[in-house]
Each structure stands twice: as structure tokens, then as C-alpha cells.
Design a protein around this nucleic acid. Structure first.
Lengths: 192, 192
DNA sequence: TGATAAATAGACAGACCTGTCTGTATATCA
DNA sequence: TGATATACAGACAGGTCTGTCTATTTATCA
């Protein structure tokens, strides 16, 4: 029934890693939930770490595709597209399956920066920042890289706060703060 | 030689939890580094979870005391005290022992919000926000609670970004963005 | 149909983990 | 000195984890 055992394993793993964490999720738990034999997993992936890496690559691709599509669909002007980044946040936090950012948690579970898992998490954040920088440049921000990083601070901060404290209020404040930062970065300098 | 075995155990545990994570750090590792017998640990703490809770309480108290002292020492005006919150960030990130926020990582390692460890992490974030709200109120912000949360988004976002991507640039952008948000929250409304 | 590939269940080794127990040594204080 | 509390080293039980292996069954496709 599953399109491919490999993809089904990845989706199951993503769910469990998100819910319980990487180290806390045993191989056997993934196998039981997916209804797949152990050797099938080890035929598709060399090790648990390779499974984690493949799962994260999948989430990275999905996330960036979703970003690109949703944002270009919603925002009429480049400025609106920057704002649109924060419009999905509240719905995301309200989703019962929300459990924080998989990449932030990966970097926490594998703290050594040389670990391929940690490195992949860092690369994902870099790609998102790059995407924001493109939007900021189109919107004629004075310092596109700076605005992109500032907005990412709000984005990640909100994600963390929703995960730690629960609730969705962080999304609203992030949206409000983003508006302020965008205005300040695009409009003519206030006093000079 | 150590003042008290209990405190020495806590300090050692904090170092290792910060470096490797909670689940990834075994009791035996803590004991070996602290040079303490296993029964001594279990005489002072009922379980590993109790040790984690005690360690987090210690860090919570230290952090809030440091905040209160450093900020009131540095900032002349209430507005300066809000800024001062972000002045320490860069030094913190540059510290070789920096490994992200212990509370964010605790909430990630113990994702169930009913878990006492997760609950303690959430409470810590709440207390920090409360502290910021007090400063924002003294600074005559229009919406002290809102500004406090916005600044916390920057703070946590920067902490996460420094942990995941390394480097200290997040501190600078957080400082810059904080300035913009403070200005916008305190000065008269720009257009009305 | 028959041959080849893929998936199954489940046992297993070896490592690691938490928490308990024992018996001995050391420190504190009357 | 003697009595009491604390710390010690280290073995141990019972559990979990990853990854390997085997032997059997199910798909696939010519």
C-alpha cells in the first residue's frame, strides 16, 4: 500500500523525531509504527544517523518548497512577501502536531558542529536566510542581509517560544515586530 | 576540597548537560568527571531527573541574578537597561563553553509539556519575560508586555542561531533589531 | 510457470543505561 | 577515645539500544 517503503519509513521517522526527539526515538519504535521489518530499514539506510540525515533532507526540501510557493502566491509586492513569511506561523503553532523546529532540535541533540546532522541543520538555516535575503533585496531594503537575519531571529525565536511555553501568541508578536523591522529597513531613514 | 559535594555535582552536571545534552549524558560520566561515588549522587538526588531539575533551578537563579545585577549596574535610564540586555550576548556566544540555552534544550529533550523538566524550562522563560516587562514598563513603553515578548523573541532567536550556525553575528543583529523595536515602542506613534 | 528480488519475523551480540546493594574507609563531633 | 554520618569503589540486576544474522514468505517480472 505505501508508495515506497523508503518514503513511508522517512515520514514515520519524521513524525516520531518531531514528537519525541532523535535520541529518544528508538529504531524499534519507528519500525513498529511503520509496520516494517528491521532489515528493510537497514537495507535502505546504512544506520540510524543516515536515516536522520535523509529525514532532515526531506523536511528541508519540503519546507523550502512550501515557503517559495506559499509566499509567492500570497504576496503581491516584495514587501508583502516578506510579511507573508510570518502569516503562516500562527497556524503552524496551533497544529497539534507542532513540536518545534526539527533543525533546531537536531542541532541540540547533536551538539558537535562537525557532526553531519548538526551541519545539515546549520545549512538549512543558512538557506532560509538566503531566501529571506532575496526577498529583502527585491523589497529594496537598505541592508538585505541584515534585515534577513533580523527576521530570522524573530522566526526562530517565535518557534522556540511556542515549543517551550506553548500557545500561539509568539506568532502575533513576531508578526508585529517583523512589520516594525521591515518598515525601518525600507522606509527612508527616520532622522538624517 | 569542594565546598559541598552536592554543589560540585550540580556544577559538573551543568557543564556536561550543556556540552552533550541531557539524555546523551550518562550518570557515570558525571560521576567520573566530578570524582564522586555513585551512592553519593543518589544520596543527594532521588534520580537523574531530580538532578536535572536541581541543575536547572541553579542555572535559573544564577541567570536571573546576573541579569538583574548586570543590567541595573550598566543602564542609567530604563531604556538603557533594556538595551543592556543585548550587550552581553556577543560575549556569551564567543565563550568557548557556550552551547545554547539550557532551557530551550531541556524543553527539546523532554517534549511533554507536563514533564516537570519541561515545565521548569517554560517557567524560566516566563520569569525572564516578566523581568523584561518590568523594564519596558519603567521605560514607558506603550505595550510593555508586547515589547517584552518581542525582545525575548530576538534574544531566544539569537541564542538558537548562535548554537546552530555558530559565530556571534546574531548578537549584533539582535542588538540592532532591539534598538529599532524599543524606539518604535516608546517614541510617539510614527503616523497618527 | 519459474527465477530473482524484496520484505517478513524474530533471535541475538555487545554496548550502554539507571538505580541498588555491599563492604570498607574516612571524617566529624561528643 | 568512641559513635555516627558520610563517602568510597565496584559489582550487579534489569532494562534499552543499535546493528547483524538467519530462515521463511511474499512480490515482481520474464
Amino acid at each position: 500500500m505505501p508508495a515506497s517503503r523508503r518514503e513511508h519509513l522517512l515520514d514515520t521517522a519524521i513524525d516520531l523525531f518531531s514528537e519525541q526527539g532523535y535520541r529518544a526515538t528508538g529504531i524499534d519504535t519507528i519500525l513498529a509504527k511503520a509496520g516494517v521489518a528491521k532489515m528493510t530499514l537497514y537495507n535502505h539506510f546504512k544506520s540510524k544517523d543516515e536515516l536522520i540525515l535523509a529525514a532532515l533532507r526531506r523536511v528541508d526540501e519540503r519546507t523550502r518548497a512550501h515557503f517559495a510557493e506559499e509566499i509567492s502566491r500570497r504576496g503581491a509586492t516584495p514587501e508583502d512577501r516578506l510579511r507573508a513569511v510570518f502569516d503562516d506561523l500562527e497556524r503552524w503553532f496551533a497544529d497539534p502536531a507542532f513540536n518545534g523546529c526539527l533543525f533546531i532540535k537536531a542541532a541540540a541533540d547533536y551538539p558537535d558542529a562537525r557532526d553531519p546532522i548538526h551541519a545539515l541543520a546549520a545549512e538549512h538555516k543558512r538557506l532560509i536566510r538566503q531566501f529571506l535575503e532575496g526577498l529583502a533585496r527585491e523589497a529594496a531594503a537598505r541592508d538585505p542581509a541584515g534585515l534577513a537575519q533580523q527576521l530570522q531571529l524573530l522566526f526562530d525565536g517565535a518557534t522556540v517560544q511556542a515549543q517551550v511555553c506553548g500557545g500561539t501568541e509568539a506568532a502575533l508578536q513576531a508578526r508585529t515586530a517583523a512589520e516594525t523591522l521591515i518598515q525601518a529597513a525600507i522606509r527612508p531613514l527616520p532622522q538624517s
